[in-house]
Design a protein around this nucleic acid. Structure first.
Lengths: 192, 192
DNA sequence: GGGTCAACCAAGCAAGCGCTAGTGTAAACG
DNA sequence: CGTTTACACTAGCGCTTGCTTGGTTGACCC
């Protein structure tokens, strides 16, 4: 068994698993379905992953890690004003939701299926990501761009963003940029 | 079988099922677990519900119907200004999320487990509820209380609200009123 | 050119699943 | 009184589940 291994083969298998988990849900996706999607037999699956749970953890880890990287890049690259940084974060968030859509949907819906150890590990990753948001929101508060409770505002904003996976249609007329603009406009106050 | 029946016994069973569905998820909740929670044997369960799916549908229907009733009452009772009505809707939404928490969590997480017929039926209920929101948001837009795209704003707002089930702690210091205030303050613009 | 090793397969086990069939019983009804 | 009705029980069928076991294959290595 490869256990902690990060082979390219495993990465590809993880990507395919994410797709199935989205379509069917984790519990309804059998190891036989996973194996077929991957073009192997169900037994061979356990050469790459210790058990079914580990596949779920791998899917979620992949998505969260990417989100973190993209958000950090966006902040490093972006402008210096709170408004620009708010925009950059929102856009980065929505872009990840597109490119790694499957992984994020799985993370949102199947988080509770993780066993305690995996959950603890992945919680750290997620916390790191949310810390970025709170930092940017702190800056916006400091500049007077938005008002209110730091904790509540960041939760409400992340809720609005995360919820987009439930209704956003990439084929539709709206780009991630549009959404980011609309969101930032909605929560920031410029004199009317 | 009672099939379409709405006996008080069935209502109580539905409430208990909701609790288990939240704890374990629909797929992981076995009919034997449900029966034990209800104090009967697994076979007896199918006297009240045609199959497991019907229990899920009953749980979600219950929650959505209550949300609709409460929201309508809040709007009828509430003031006439867009600001007051926005507050009333937000407060009503958060209150339902508290009193019928289990049912709503199930509705959010397990919606996709519904079979097509049940989903079609419940979609109508949900659409009716969302129509209330869009109406209130239209009023707020007309009054210039908020700006932006009607569709996007309502989705973002409902996202922020629905997401609260993932982090809101009823035992914590914040009341649903606090949340509603914060949300409305965040999205409305009063001259700074 | 023997040894190593990742990757895969065939076969199947033990457990658990949703659901059914057939029966019992006590209260309600005419 | 006999019949119906609501609710519960026991027993288990047929199937699927996650996972294990023991073995095969082909590419690479000193």
């Amino acid at each position: 068994m490869n256990v902690i291994n990060e082979s390219p083969r495993r990465k590809e298998l993880t990507r395919q698993a994410a797709q199935l988990f989205v379509q069917e849900g984790f519990d309804r996706t059998t190891v036989r379905m996973l194996a077929q999607e991957m073009g192997i037999k169900s037994g061979s699956l356990f050469h790459h992953f210790r058990d079914k749970q580990e596949i779920l953890a791998a899917v979620i880890e992949e998505g969260t890690q990417n989100a973190l990287v993209i958000a950090r890049e966006a902040l490093d690259r972006g402008g210096s004003g709170a408004d620009a940084r708010l925009h950059a974060m929102a856009r980065a968030h929505l872009e990840t939701l597109l490119t790694d859509r499957n992984a994020h949907v799985v993370a949102l819906y199947e988080w509770r299926r993780l066993d305690p150890e995996a959950r603890a590990h992945l919680s750290h990753l997620r916390d790191a990501y949310e810390a970025l948001w709170e930092q940017v929101i702190d800056e916006a508060l400091a500049e007077g761009l938005i008002h209110g409770d730091r904790f509540l505002v960041s939760r409400l904003v992340m809720g609005a963003l995360n919820w987009t996976v439930r209704w956003y249609d990439p084929e539709g007329p709206r780009t991630p940029d549009d959404l980011a603009d609309e969101l930032v406009a909605m929560i920031t106050r410029r004199p009317a």
